[in-house]
Amino acid sequence: MWREIWLVCRKDLIIEWRARVTLIQIVPTVLLVLVVFAFALDANPSLLGEGAGGLFWVAVLFGAVLGAKRSFDIEAEGGNLDALRLGGLAPAAILWGKAAALALQLVLVGAFAAAGLLVLYSVTVHEWLLIVVAGLCGMAAFAICGTLYGAMTVGLRSADTLLPLLLIPVAAPVLLAGTRAFDVALGTSADQGWSWTALLAVVLVTYIAVGWAAAGPLLEDA
């Protein structure tokens, strides 16, 4: 099982390495969102600093939607998904492999976005550990959710427009908890950062459970 997951994950990462869609398209888009927020808030440094935590997560959520779409675009071409199934891979292995690859790419996106916060919004980080743990939990949750919904809409003609509508409400708890945790880590709020991170972990565990149950029905005759 682990080997199959690794195979699928590696396949996705190799495709990304060759095409560099995440690096050349998604990362710049996310950074662009951060820049555009500055227009919306009239380039007010104190406002940007205060909202930095939330803006980070909104920007990364957009990145996650794009990443989920991309992750299944490469499968829709030429019936790739069927080929994987015919190759004897279990649906769960495909799902988790793709989720792992997407999570790694989102970590990359998140790292660039965090760097963007430091440079563009000139925030100061009080708790690096909180940023890293909350960030990793959040990216993993986005990745699993995105993979599930990507699998749900794969091959549909209006998947591009439907995916954000489906994904954004589901991602609301991640957005909320991640924002609170980042606000604490950036020193803009005196909340309980670690309990929000714990909530992120709970969400993550729930998504993993849902993923196990949904992999079969979603991918079996897709």
């Binding site: 599930l148 749900m152 609301a172 609170r180 729930t206 949904a214 029905p217 979603l218």
Partner: peptide, 28 residues
């Protein structure tokens, strides 16, 4: 099948959304 999976995710997600939003307000 696809819509069935989504309906189940949606219903599982409901309590999570509910409680996270609850905490968001009560903490603030």
């Amino acid at each position: 099948r696809r819509s069935a999976v989504m309906a189940l995710i949606a219903v599982v997600n409901l309590p999570i959304v509910h409680y996270s939003v609850d905490w968001w307000r009560t903490l603030h």
